[in-house]
Design a protein around this nucleic acid. Structure first.
Lengths: 324, 324
DNA sequence: CTGTTAGCGCTTTCAA
DNA sequence: TTGAAAGCGCTAACAG
């Protein structure tokens, strides 16, 4: 491997000067810079990150802790976070928490031991208290999609309850009265909030839910819940708290020879992964996780970053029928 | 941050000794080891990876280049590769190639510039030639699911053609004669091989395909191809070259009021992500990508690793009906 | 079994 | 605007 020293020798300058041009320091004579750059190109020099990290005590490495790697949601998250990190000249280390507090804690610990400059945390199991402790240790991190009391300035949040209510309102405005809600695990607060938003909108409209069923946030759950539901009742609208649930429900609905939206209307919570790509395309409330992730990275690297707020947005597609 | 030196001072030994116990060197007196370990625990010492990398010229970092982050396949790949890497005490840097040769090349370059000790490449667009050149540069890498002429010892491969033929044979053995094949993009060789395997089995059995349709490897494509198909013909069996395609096809089939497997049987190529989890569970040929990925990491770290071969396996589930 | 001693390749004062 | 020099925290011979 060619080193700074090699470049310095080849360009006839000191190592310090090469370091300056590599790091874009302005105090270098134009001609010197040109010479050095030529030497770099000729030798194919690329700085050794370890040496750089050791000397500067900055690893230029960010960490991301997620709940799991499975599901479309993760791909989108990972994609955005990494693109943004690279844009800012940082590398990214990713680790999954696998839904237990202990694993999340150790993942975070490991990433800090690896000397990450900062972490984006998309975690569920770990307690607020642990997060608070971490903050006191002066660790740099941002919490994605979770509100931690006392750490508001480090949280990038979204109003799931409002978003959910808005989505439900679409059904109500279209004249539906027999509406069911399929939601995720009660162990997740964002899941509870979505369910609550649904209930808000219903009671506001003076409506009683046809049913409210919960399970995992995956396709089989959607399929099963919807199947079980349709054995007993025949609602005109189903609201699904994520995309996987919605696709599972679609399968169950169509399997029974019912059509969407002619017989049953559908709306889901989405992160832009698949709702738009199935047929019929599903009308949804957009959960701007990618925008939020991008903002999280910016915030991590720039302390003066002003807080941004993310508003729910309804995306009208083809899965809602208007009832006269 | 506490350093080796701090630990050495606290334990009353030299830095070399601490380094020895940290690295599991055997030549340390039991009592000394205990003292040092106590000091490490007390001080909460964790080695600085940059210093370690600089001194040893080993980064303990592996790289993974994938085509994309989207789709269930990637999550599974990433999950296995990372778990295995961690098991071996390595971290993992992941980058996506995004399906262009140029991006794949630069991703690989970047990872090597970052001083990764080795790379797992799951790439499509880059040419064999480029890979060959890389090998001559003495870069350490393993190519996943692709056969490169002259680089056989660095490739972890799977016989897609055979696997696909085996899957098709299941239909044939069950008495089906009107079989269609839904395959992926013709730009991918593994996609072509799967298609070819289907044709092999059909012609072996003296059967003519009811249809052979190709498109993207995703759910919308599966939905569209199957819909279009069912407008015109009514086969008794559909073979899908991946899981997404199969789920899209299921949607189209059930939407028409047809049942699986009563009216139409289904088999798909799978990587263990979803075929087992939809209803009915889809009979499939298992593509052991996780096993292959795990092996790739081992091979990367152990040159004497003997080659392993991965055999296709049929997993019988509930989507195939026997025709008398 | 343990300590001493050079570096690894870079950044960063401090002078010049 | 440039160079000299002192580390950053660790590993790896080499002695002892």
């Amino acid at each position: 491997m060619v080193t700074l020293e090699d470049v310095a020798a080849s360009a006839g300058v000191s190592r310090a000067t090469v370091s300056r041009v590599v790091n874009g320091d302005t105090k270098v004579k134009a001609q010197t810079r040109i010479n050095v750059e030529a030497a770099i190109a000729e030798l194919g020099y690329s700085p050794n990150p370890a040496a750089r990290a050791l000397a500067s005590s900055q690893s230029h490495t960010l960490g991301l802790v997620t709940t799991s790697y499975r599901g479309g949601f993760f791909g989108a998250l990972m994609d955005t976070v990494q693109s943004e990190a690279e844009l800012q000249g940082q590398q990214l280390l990713v680790t999954q928490g696998r839904d237990t507090a202990e694993k999340e804690r150790s993942a975070i610990q490991r990433l800090f031991n690896l000397r990450c400059d900062g972490l984006v945390l998309h975690v569920r199991a770990i307690t607020d208290e642990t997060l608070l402790q971490l903050a006191e240790l002066d660790r740099k991190f941002i919490v994605l999609d979770r509100e931690v009391q006392g750490l508001e300035d480090r949280c990038v949040v979204f109003d799931h309850r409002l978003a959910s209510a808005l989505a439900t309102q679409v059904f109500i405005d279209a004249g539906h009265t027999s509406i069911v809600c399929l939601h995720g695990p009660s162990s997740r607060s964002s899941s509870l909030l979505r369910r609550q938003g649904f209930l808000d909108a219903m009671s506001n409209a003076g409506l009683v839910p046809a049913a409210v069923l919960g399970g995992e946030y995956d396709m089989p759950a959607g399929y099963q819940l919807a199947s079980q539901l349709l054995e007993n009742i025949r609602p005109t609208a189903i609201y699904c708290c994520n995309e996987e649930l919605a696709i599972g429900a679609m399968l169950a609905v169509t399997e029974r020879g019912l059509r969407i939206p002619q017989d049953i209307s559908l709306i889901c919570y989405d992160s832009g992964e698949r709702a738009a790509f199935v047929r019929p395309a599903i009308t949804s409330v957009h959960f701007p996780i990618t925008e939020m992730a991008r903002f999280a990275i910016r915030k991590l690297l720039d302390n003066h970053c002003k807080n941004e707020s993310f508003l729910p947005e309804i995306i009208h597609r083809d899965s809602v029928r208007r009832i006269c």
